[in-house]
Design a protein around this nucleic acid. Sequence first.
DNA 1: GATGAATGAGGTTTCATTCAT
DNA 2: TATGAATGAAACCTCATTCAT
Lengths: 212, 212, 212, 212
Amino acid sequence: MGVAATTAVLGQTRRRSRFDRRLARILEHATNIFCDKGYERASMRDLSRACAMSLAGLYYYFDSKERLLYLIEKELFERVTELLDQKLPATTDPEQRVRLFIENHITFFLAKQKAMKVLAQEDDVLTGNMGSEIAAIKRDYYRRCTELLEELRCAKGLHFKSRSIAMALFGAMNCLHTWYNPKVDSPPRLLAKEISDIFLCGVYAKNGSASI
Amino acid sequence: MGVAATTAVLGQTRRRSRFDRRLARILEHATNIFCDKGYERASMRDLSRACAMSLAGLYYYFDSKERLLYLIEKELFERVTELLDQKLPATTDPEQRVRLFIENHITFFLAKQKAMKVLAQEDDVLTGNMGSEIAAIKRDYYRRCTELLEELRCAKGLHFKSRSIAMALFGAMNCLHTWYNPKVDSPPRLLAKEISDIFLCGVYAKNGSASI
Amino acid sequence: MGVAATTAVLGQTRRRSRFDRRLARILEHATNIFCDKGYERASMRDLSRACAMSLAGLYYYFDSKERLLYLIEKELFERVTELLDQKLPATTDPEQRVRLFIENHITFFLAKQKAMKVLAQEDDVLTGNMGSEIAAIKRDYYRRCTELLEELRCAKGLHFKSRSIAMALFGAMNCLHTWYNPKVDSPPRLLAKEISDIFLCGVYAKNGSASI
Amino acid sequence: MGVAATTAVLGQTRRRSRFDRRLARILEHATNIFCDKGYERASMRDLSRACAMSLAGLYYYFDSKERLLYLIEKELFERVTELLDQKLPATTDPEQRVRLFIENHITFFLAKQKAMKVLAQEDDVLTGNMGSEIAAIKRDYYRRCTELLEELRCAKGLHFKSRSIAMALFGAMNCLHTWYNPKVDSPPRLLAKEISDIFLCGVYAKNGSASI
DNA sequence: GATGAATGAGGTTTCATTCAT
DNA sequence: TATGAATGAAACCTCATTCAT
């Protein structure tokens, strides 16, 4: 953490929240810059300009460039998971639950298209503890999708490899950022439905014959 | 281009081919390194070590790191297109042609998983002429897929947005490199069939209702 | 000097002494840190952490890192000189006076082994006025030792160069901090006697022949 | 090691020795600068100026500033040990061997007064492998002195703690750099004799009574 | 064809210090 | 008295690239 963490004794909400608000603003700028130029090509000076702050001033809020990426990625997964946890209990129908996962993922990441790109493109850059922590979070998130598919498969007695379907599905969803254009493409919720339809119909239709 | 361009012009076949063989070897090493560390994090010294060659020596074969990436990407698309052009005339059935495209893409890139990753991850780094040239090549390649889908749609009177399907399909295919493991997953040709099935069945099954 | 100098002038004893007590505590922490990490490698943040105080807060008590070192060194010499002045009048025997000097030096600095190390290792860092003031103080202190040796030489009609002996003696004494270990080595007073014996016996024994 | 180490395949004496000569020159400049300003205060830019070379150019010859210090310290000990090994076999008389050690140490380090100061002042800065390697070398060198004193003690049946004498002796010798002035003080060989006399006479004279 | 040696530009990070509050 | 927040300067180091040989 940045310098401030060391002196952050008090629970003075005002102060603490000012720090958090500032940090959040920095993370937003960082997300934009990492998205536009890529993590490595983005320099801390770029960020300092975007934040209208001195280079040294930035480091009051975090330790290192690497941790910026870590914070961005971690928060993203925390938020999308949180939303998922709110929505998922609403239904017990396996198909609806899969559709819910897809919709949650697509609407969340399309709302944060830039962050999505950062996440997709800067996959291996985090190393050490931060790297393995993010990797674990990602794995968990993917596993949840696989499990929902597995539920569906069991419930309907279908034949397919949940892992493969999940991977193809994530491939399709996570690459949206490379081509999605709100002006010509369907709005997020509809797009989510369309993709769900393709995958679910595909899965149902070929049932009994080959298995993926 | 490097110094050698002069000799290349002379048409001295012997020289030219030795040059080409050496360059090809360098491009292979570069592909591995770019894949493992990412384009920006990979240094020319890493490459010189891998090639057991001096830094200055490398520059005889190309004139900038950026061009290395350009050459890698360009050759990849040239090869995959070449193969496609050989196979596609074999059939006129629209569905078979789509399946052929998918199989060609997946088997080619799974055989060159590292190159695939480079292509997927270093999307925006090329700038200027090289950047736009590669972008044009990519666009053409994508358009071919879209056109094949369009052929199918017309032939069968289906309702779907070819562009969206193509994009989802490319997403699914291009992310294979992040999870594909030859030891646990289906071999390339079978995997291609499975993915084709999902998408085509999906498209057929939902026809008439919603369209993607 | 820090802001507090203004209040100090007012002669407000209460304030002044609280200020002094706080400053003394800071100097102790600074001594430890300078000893452990070296003056340059020790950061003001290290000190702020040790003092459980904010960085800005520290600067109320002094106006620069350099002055911290100055204050440490100055106080050290003031104290050791003060003690010497108390003890020295007790005897007029030249040999006893030399022994007294040695004992005073060794017991004082072994009691403050960390300060001793700071003094020995950060010799040239002070510049400007503070630098020359400390240099003068050191020179005076060294001169006193030389003068005591000179007294001895004259009184006993010996032949040796007091300056050289003094320097060798200080070398031996000031490097104690690098190896002295209270658990295995003689206690300070005995160690002082042993070193005195070596130097004095050495000086007596070789008298008449060569001179140092 | 510097960049060059990686490509240094060949035993081409001409090339290799040019590299070595350049590196040696850099180490000399570094020694002067580290001596004058201290290791931490000396910047690589200072060194680049002294060497009339670009900053990046310097790094062709070594890895890091830390390794510069390591190389300086290591070479110093290697040289002084080498010289000692040449001289020591010349005599078997224990006293002469101790005198030889002292003379070798003093003449060597007084000839390289600046290096001596670097060695004395930058004691703890090396960390990790380099740090422990140098520490081991130093310990060995000190142990040799202690062993020579021990030989003397046994041969003459004297009573003193070799370790303490060695430490006081090194203290006296290693601080020479702080005051030795070739214009007013005895030349190195004579100074060595004088210091030897003091310590040996001191040791002989007080034998039977107290022991150090 | 190939290399040893060199460089300018730029990277991230740390530092002592300040100032409004 | 004390602090949170900020800063300019400078640190070490790496990079892609070049050029005489």
